Amino acid sequence: MTTTHTILAVALSLVFLPLGLAKTAAVPFMRQAAAHLGMSPGLYRVIGALEVAGAAGLLLGLASVPLGVAAAAGLAVLMVAAAVVHLRHGDPPVQALPAAVLALMAVVYAGAAIAAG
């Protein structure tokens, strides 16, 4: 395990865990975001649960590399999908940028985890 691998796992988890929990709890801000994107609160809760599971998988990946790589791959796919949804909904590209950056960070994490062995 490398320092890069550990820092990315913690940083990504610190982003995905609170956002995922807010989505699963359906806090007002997240309900508004779901409505803006034309998603049901139920679907947004599922996305939140996937984010929480991904954050947990990243942290567990510090002990089990394959689990961390799988979690990072899942989060990368989820974030690419999020960026696409924002763009298809007509949002300006700057609103899709955070999801794209998180997807890239998840891919870098996976690469660092694989390189660390």
Rank of each mutant, 00 (worst) to 15 (best):
A55V: 04
L104W: 12
A100Q: 07
D91H: 07
A53S: 10
A63P: 02
L21R: 13
R45G: 01
F16A: 10
A72H: 00
A113K: 04
L102D: 01
R31H: 04
A115P: 06
P18H: 13
F29C: 10
R31W: 04
I47A: 04
A103D: 09
V52R: 02
M39Y: 10
V84C: 13
A25P: 14
A115V: 11
R45E: 04
V85D: 11
L75G: 03
V101A: 11
R88C: 14
V27F: 06
G57P: 01
A55Y: 01
A112M: 07
A35I: 02
E51S: 01
L12Y: 13
A113N: 03
P41L: 00
A55W: 00
G57T: 03
L104E: 11
L87T: 09
L78E: 12
L14K: 14
Q32P: 06
V108I: 08
A72F: 05
T3P: 15
V46M: 03
A63Y: 11
A113L: 03
L87A: 12
G74V: 06
A25D: 12
R31E: 02
L59D: 05
H5G: 10
P66G: 09
M79L: 12
L97A: 13
L60H: 07
G117F: 02
V84E: 13
L75E: 07
L8D: 08
L21W: 13
M30W: 02
V52K: 01
P66R: 09
G117W: 06
E51M: 08
M1R: 13
V108Q: 00
A72R: 05
S40G: 11
